[in-house]
Nucleic acid binder design. Structure first.
Lengths: 214, 214
DNA sequence: GTCCTGTTTTACCGCTTGGTCAACAATTGA
DNA sequence: TCAATTGTTGACCAAGCGGTAAAACAGGAC
């Protein structure tokens, strides 16, 4: 089981019904896989949520792994876009603010996607190991170099750039991955846009200005 | 399935063999559950890792849930200790540094414990829902009040204290929960103590001093 | 109508899973 | 020493699992 790094092209023709049902299945699969992980999810669960019988689902995806890999491929590229878009020529603080804001927006808009990766990585990333070691590593190394240049140029404070990227990931994805915990502590208010704004402000303030009084 | 909030006392007498084998089982179960979550783990896996037959394991814990709940109970209390120990009368910056350092040390020393919670919460926290809404919420609210007092007293910058706590959790636990990803990007060096020190410095610097040049 | 293609369902298979049971082995205590 | 207790195991079961086969169904082209 392994994801292809590029979005697979349908190659052959596909009917309208195929497109619709594939979409329905992938949506249902995302919800299930993002909650229980690959091993903890069952085809029946996905079929139920997709509103179709198990054999019918298996008519569109021959095996459980195929669904899983498709869901992962479907979201991987999108997920890295904000980091890829960080502009080496832009103003460092503006770029970082923008990056954080976009990551936070994605976590809020598609928390299941975040949880899907979290589950995959927790389980040792069997399906995306290669992706992590190549595409992701290359992108992160490239952006870390950009950050380092900003630091040696004295435009932002010196912190290990890899760790900085990890920290931004950790903070922005926390509200998606640990939503249950956040909601248990904060209450229903955790859904409000006000809460999300406060979270964004807190992250930005902490990362950019720090806690110490100046 | 639900954890009891206090450590259960053995009540009846228990033999030496019982104590030893329970410990072996719980250690094996922690490794398995922390990787695959409750639903993704099997009793056979745990029995294999514990080096005993499945019926023998079930002699000590009647059901899969019982093992799971026991493992959770075993680690929950320890996990919150650092936050509980944060001293309202201490120096804010010192206390925060200490808290971060202890959390980071725990994540490094027992990453499986961190991943166990991550998995449980990702799956909607079916076993510790009550714990999150009572014990954890109370503790967090209490410490958030302490942080808020420090802020209104002008001893640290003003950031929403709940979010601050979430951010510290996110950052310190990231290296345990996403170890696979970190290792894929950093390489084997990720195990080194040097790497861990750099991580600690980065977190502390970011949280306390921020990124902007002063 | 009837053929063809694509879609859906019913029935099923073999394997894994959580869990039981009864028999057997080891330990303990008098 | 020997019986009672505690610990261990192989055989087994019912339910759940991923997956298959084949028949039934739908709809358009002729």
């Amino acid at each position: 089981m392994d994801v292809r790094l590029r979005r697979k092209k349908p190659a052959g023709k596909s009917t309208r019904i195929q497109e619709v049902n594939r979409r329905i299945i992938l949506d249902a699969a995302l919800e299930v896989f993002s909650t229980y992980g690959f091993r903890g999810s069952t085809i029946d669960q996905i079929a139920d949520r997709a509103g179709m019988s198990k054999p019918n689902l298996l008519y569109y995806f021959k095996r459980k792994q195929d669904i899983y890999v498709s869901v992962l491929e479907d979201t991987l590229a999108d997920w890295l876009q904000p980091l890829a878009d960080m502009d080496p020529l832009g103003d460092p603080v503006t770029e970082l603010q923008r990056y954080i804001a976009r990551k936070l927006a994605m976590s809020a808009a598609r928390p299941e996607a975040s949880r899907l990766f979290a589950n995959e990585i927790l389980q040792g990333a069997p399906a995306i190991q290669k992706f992590l070691r190549t595409t992701l590593k290359d992108l992160v190394d490239e952006k870390a170099a950009v950050l380092r240049r900003w630091m040696t140029d004295g435009r932002i404070a010196a912190v290990d750039p890899h760790h900085l990227i990890f920290m931004i990931w950790a903070m922005t994805q926390h509200y998606a991955d640990f939503e249950t915990q956040v909601r248990a502590i904060i209450g229903s208010e955790a859904d409000s846009t006000a809460f999300r704004q406060t979270a964004g402000q807190a992250i930005t303030t902490l990362l950019l200005d720090g806690l110490k009084r100046r």
